[in-house]
């Protein structure tokens, strides 16, 4: 067991994967000798050579197109998109190609070996294009898996699982926590399951659901609610697609209340899918409407970042309102 921050855990996972399987290849903008703008790929080129860890030209559609081809050839391609905000030039390759590769060919070909790593999320004064949380765009696409870790231990275990999963995975890394989140991470190889939520705090009164960096906000709001005598159950969804419907519905059937929170804008955010599913499957258990605490329906702002973010106070207020409904 070592103390690692989130970046070190990701770097450790990549090294573990590359040591165990010489089919694993890492590439993207600045990931080579420099080790990535966040240093997630530090020393990979030194350890494994330029052929297995290299810079690409600056083209997101090219990176993912290339990755699709490499994965269909049988390699485990780990492509980095420098910021989630810049994944959109590759949207066509991801949605029309990556996601449909196996289905459209009748399983003659697949890109199951592909993992797309990308930093996401706000709270770093990143403005419009260094702050977005684009998970909901991809959650509307059958064929993809979407994973978001909240801490270093999860980052390593979920990334190793994503690399080895025989389906393409988009792995969103909460960049606000890259250096801020520090924790114990086993040195050895381990995986955490994709598609399974984790209950991080048991409670009886209200279910609080989040993922990634927003888990820190949700946990603090739950502590604050506890001081007011409200016992929250806090769940980390971990996988957006496929998502753990059973765990969330079981919790809501117990507590009768649900607050979902994410950084991305409210309208058509993934919270909407959760709210609709929960009202369908736990209708008779609900004591209050499902509450969504999300970013506003505006481009991610710079000077009003604090006001935009679904912070601890907003989540706390939503919990109280749900309890008092």
């Amino acid at each position: 067991m070592s103390q690692m921050n989130l970046l070190q855990a990701i770097n450790n996972a990549l090294i573990t994967a590359m040591e165990k399987d010489d089919k694993v290849v890492c590439f993207g903008e600045d990931v080579g000798h420099f080790g990535g703008v966040f240093r997630a790929t530090s020393h990979l080129q030194e350890k494994f050579g330029r052929a297995r860890c290299f810079n690409t030209p600056l083209t997101e559609q090219g990176i993912i197109g290339f990755a699709n081809g490499l994965a269909s050839q049988g390699h485990k391609a780990i492509a980095e998109i420098q910021f989630g905000d810049y994944i959109f030039p590759a949207f066509d390759q991801i949605v029309n190609e990556t996601a449909k590769f196996r289905y459209r060919s009748g399983n003659e070909f697949n890109v199951g070996g592909l993992t797309i790593r990308t930093p996401y999320g706000g709270g770093i004064r990143g403005g419009h294009y260094h702050s977005q949380s684009p998970e909901a765009y991809f959650a509307h696409t059958p064929g993809l898996k979407i994973v978001v870790p909240r801490n270093p231990h999860q980052a390593k275990g979920l990334l190793l699982a994503s690399i080895r999963d025989d389906n393409p995975v988009i792995f969103f890394e909460p960049k606000r926590l890259y250096r801020a989140a520090v924790g114990d991470v086993p040195e050895e190889d381990y995986e955490l399951p994709i598609g399974v939520a984790e209950t991080v705090r048991e409670g009886q009164d209200c279910t609080l659901l989040a993922w990634g960096a927003q888990m820190e906000v949700a946990s603090k709001a739950a502590e604050r609610a506890e001081k007011e005598g409200i016992d929250c159950e806090v769940i980390d969804l971990r996988s957006i697609l496929p998502w753990d419907v059973d765990a969330v519905v079981a919790s809501v059937k117990k507590t009768g209340r649900l607050v979902v929170t994410h950084e991305a804008p409210l309208t058509n955010g993934f919270g909407a899918e959760i709210a609709a599913t929960v009202q369908e499957q736990a209708f008779l258990s609900l004591e209050a409407p499902v509450s969504r605490v999300c970013g506003l329906d505006v481009p991610y702002p710079l000077s009003h970042e604090a006001e935009y973010m679904p912070d601890e106070t907003k989540v706390f207020e939503a919990i109280v309102a749900t309890m008092n409904y």
Binding site: G62, G65, N68, L70, S72
Partner: peptide
């Protein structure tokens, strides 16, 4: 879409 894919496939070869 197959054009960058072909580059990646050949890189694997």
């Amino acid at each position: 879409t197959q054009i960058p894919q072909a580059a990646g496939y050949a890189y694997g070869q």
